[in-house]
Design a protein around this nucleic acid. Structure first.
Lengths: 247, 247
DNA sequence: GTTTCCACTTGATCTCGGTCAAGGTATCTT
DNA sequence: AAGATACCTTGACCGAGATCAAGTGGAAAC
């Protein structure tokens, strides 16, 4: 049940929590206070970080790689309910356990904080609590946006929606969204995409082939994607072209 | 755009916000402070409370009736992304507007607070901020639970899931869940149920008829539901019999 | 070099739920 | 009482996506 992980007490200057101003790294005093409750963990692709129902004694954020939140029914049907990209927060302050599995979808590094001290810090530091509320509202918006995808979009629109999310997240680190083609590597297997989209992996494969045939995307190998026209992709996704949503 | 509503400055002793300890009603000093920023609003069934993208200058909670959060695509496909029952919180502290329509699904009374003063109170009163985070995490859990319903469940399971949510919410006010049959009135039209479940109203109707035929539920008229065996209904919903989730 | 394995693709067929259409029933209006 | 309206039910048919099955390609293992 306890996964293999390496604990690493390296200095955390590049810890992505601070990108979202949730942790106290911007404030040197708080930094000191955190230093001894903070550690890195690495996970291999496919590894389960926490099982649904298990105690979760840390919070943290994704440094590199992708984590996913998954719910599974007794008969094996699974639905991914969240996709955590670098800088995303993991954890449920004030909660004992998770109602879903947290898995490393790719090789993953997380920056973790022991939960109790983090919660104490939170109660003492209003801006952390406030920032955490804002992040949770973001996640809620993303979850609700995804409910529209799951409930009402066609398979083709679902694929386009997913590609457009990943493209925008990737593009926001480096490229401008409306400046020429966007290029990225798909971080998910067809099966993971299917689990996120409420489809089968065969349908995912077929729809990707169709988008390629119709030149909405182009593929090199199975994972390297080029999007020549982001506006076109968002039309395919059924989004109004300007309405952006985050994962 | 501005709906007809009656403002009512009645004493708020029964305001459901305090049921969740989010507002300051439990503390008489805070109560005074809130008294002048608080008001009641009534809405008729079908009325839209806030349009997607509009400014939202209040937060509040549902006193009676049902409100729903809805997203609509350009071509008219709509998906309900949240169902707000009495005592549920409405609003996005720190946000300007909503990314979805908020509608009165039945006749509705809300207890509202002007947003700015409420936010100020929140920053001054850590336990309110904390409680609000917990409520938002609850909503997030509910949204994610619903993603499993939308993505992976069959039409029959979807209906059973919805009935079981409503039954449990209703039952928690008065009856014991595991004590005999549960009786309630369906507060939603077939169409609203379809919008929540990602189905058509015809499919909703057919599946309700099927559950009735198979004696999982019984119906008097079109809305009055009796659930003789809650465990059976939850099996039909595909839930493990003890795992409960809130709306 | 070839075997194995995994991720992916493509085809053939089936099925669940959508679509279109025709009533039915209760409530409200006139 | 007779329409009108809103909400619901049921039937017939169809199609998007699931299921079952076979095959491909590329990288790691032997």
């Amino acid at each position: 049940m306890t996964p293999n992980f390496k604990i690493d007490h390296t200095n955390c200057n590049d810890c992505p929590i601070r990108h979202r101003a949730v942790c106290a790294h911007c404030n040197p005093n708080e930094l000191e206070e955190l230093e001894d409750i903070k550690y890195y963990r690495s996970f291999e692709a496919g590894q389960t970080i926490i099982w649904s129902g298990d105690q979760m004694n840390f919070v943290g954020s994704v440094v590199s790689g992708i984590a996913s939140l998954t719910q599974t029914m007794e008969d094996g049907r699974t639905q991914m309910v969240g996709l955590l990209l670098p800088s995303d927060f993991v954890g449920r302050p004030g909660r004992e356990s998770t109602p879903y599995d947290v898995q490393a979808t790719t090789d993953l590094v997380m920056c973790c904080f022991r939960k109790k001290p983090f919660e104490d810090l939170m109660t003492e530091t209003p801006h952390i609590a406030h920032r955490l509320l804002q992040m949770t509202l973001d996640e809620l918006d993303a979850a609700r946006e995804w409910m529209l995808v799951l409930g009402r979009k066609t398979a083709r629109e679902k694929i386009a929606s997913l590609l457009s999310i990943i493209a925008r997240r990737d593009a926001s680190i480096g490229q401008k969204v409306n400046a020429g083609p966007i290029v990225f590597d798909l971080p998910l297997t067809r099966e993971a995409m299917a689990d996120y989209l409420g489809l089968t992996l065969e349908t995912v494969s077929r729809q990707i082939s169709a988008l390629k045939r119709d030149q909405v995307i182009s593929l090199e190998g199975k994972r390297h994607v080029t999007i020549p026209n982001m506006g076109r992709l968002m039309e395919e996704a059924g989004d109004d072209s300007d309405g952006g949503f985050l994962v």
